[in-house]
Write a protein that binds this DNA or RNA. Sequence first.
DNA 1: TAAAATAGTTTAGCTAGGTAAATATATTTC
DNA 2: GAAATATATTTACCTAGCTAAACTATTTTA
Lengths: 131, 131
Amino acid sequence: MNPLFHELFQKSRFLTNEINLTLKKHNLYASQWTVLFCIQKHGEMSLTQIWKYLNVEAPTITRTVYRLVELGWIDIRPGKDRREKIVSLSEKASQDFSTIKESILEFEDRMVESLTKEEETILIELLRKIK
Amino acid sequence: MNPLFHELFQKSRFLTNEINLTLKKHNLYASQWTVLFCIQKHGEMSLTQIWKYLNVEAPTITRTVYRLVELGWIDIRPGKDRREKIVSLSEKASQDFSTIKESILEFEDRMVESLTKEEETILIELLRKIK
DNA sequence: TAAAATAGTTTAGCTAGGTAAATATATTTC
DNA sequence: GAAATATATTTACCTAGCTAAACTATTTTA
């Protein structure tokens, strides 16, 4: 396998594992946090808005969202258009949000501390060129 | 989320989806191919050798290997040390291998064609710095 | 050499991605 | 306005990663 792709996949797995470790104390998994973050950023959202924004398929979001409802992080209600479901952060999620975000920011900083700002920019640009 | 990690995860998913598409005509999935490739490269291997080399956990390899046995790509036999299982490519896999490898190489080339050789090298190096 | 520790593999069960197809509601078209 | 089409979500079922714990065979140690 092309060493570039190999390295990319390895790093992707490494980072999700590390994020999961960081989130463990908050009882969250990486993709659950991603969804919470997305909702916090946009306020109320329909499921379709979420999966289009995160660029994943609808069933993935259905599943994660309902798990988050179960865990008490999210409230869900029908929209004006009765096909759609609207989700928003629960009281609990709103309260804990900034603490969790803090953990994640610390983690992210730690992960890129061996890169200069310039290198980080170049890395992003080069990744964007793959398509 | 840090735009670097966002881009990295997006690209990782994008690439596995594209690889799966490429492998569809050979009735294989990305990780199945990764395991086949690994075995072809090293000849006979124990399960532990495979998961250590690919840097994933043992149960992941157990599952993929047995699926590959089921599908007729791999032969499996007990080792001298009776705890271990040794796997090797089946007749079918050996025959089809180079054709599939060809598809993958074409795919990989297509994916990096907008990068110069230098950029590819830099990209790998920068990815390696994340840890 | 019997007991304890280690190594290789598997099982069970979780998250997280995907596709294909079903269902329910809205919208468009004839 | 009824029929056809489109949109939002869900269901079922794959692959693919993970952890924790079990099981078996080997190696080490007291």
